[in-house]
Simulated assay, not measured.
Amino acid sequence: MKTTRPADIFLRFLQLAEAVRGLPSLPDLDPLEERILMLVARAGQEHQRLSVRDMMARHELGAPATVHTRLKSMREKGWIKLSDTEDSRRKQVELTPAALQHFDRLSQCMLKATKSAG
């Protein structure tokens, strides 16, 4: 009986996730947009509010203008939405239902990869 290494499970997950990316869904993101998406997703998971201003202040993402351009692109691609807050000048960055569905599909890939390892 062949033993499954953790690396085998991860590689199987990557293979399944690549198949999900091939399905018709949201447009692809560039690497910076992927990082931004993960920040927005983690903030949402932790029930933290994340505004456009908060994102632009994150130096690790680059210049504020670059971050603003990427947020605009991600919004046009359907990955994020900007919601009103108590202060009409501040917009909260959130995942769209389509982005949440994308994460649901990736989660299913992860579960399938771990089950096929057993």
Rank of each mutant, 00 (worst) to 15 (best):
L111K: 11
R105A: 10
L32Y: 12
R53F: 04
L26T: 04
A19D: 04
Q101W: 13
A117P: 07
I80A: 07
A7D: 15
I36M: 12
A98G: 10
T69Q: 14
I9K: 14
G44K: 06
G118P: 14
R89L: 12
W79Y: 07
M55C: 08
A17L: 03
M56I: 08
Q45G: 07
L26M: 06
K112Y: 11
G62S: 05
V20P: 09
Q92D: 13
R75H: 10
L71F: 06
E86V: 13
A63C: 09
L71Q: 04
V67P: 00
R89I: 09
P97S: 05
L71K: 05
Q15N: 15
R21W: 12
E60C: 10
L95W: 02
A41G: 05
R89F: 13
R42I: 14
R42S: 12
L61Y: 04
T4E: 11
S51I: 01
A98W: 08
L95A: 03
S25H: 15
H47V: 07
A117K: 04
G78R: 02
L50K: 06
K115R: 13
Q108C: 03
I9A: 11
D8L: 01
M74I: 00
Q48G: 03
H59G: 15
R49Q: 09
E76A: 11
Q45L: 08
E94Y: 08
R35N: 02
P31D: 04
L29F: 05
R70S: 02
P27T: 01
R12W: 01
T114P: 03
L82H: 03
L106I: 09
L100N: 11
R53A: 06
S107L: 05
R5W: 11
P97E: 09
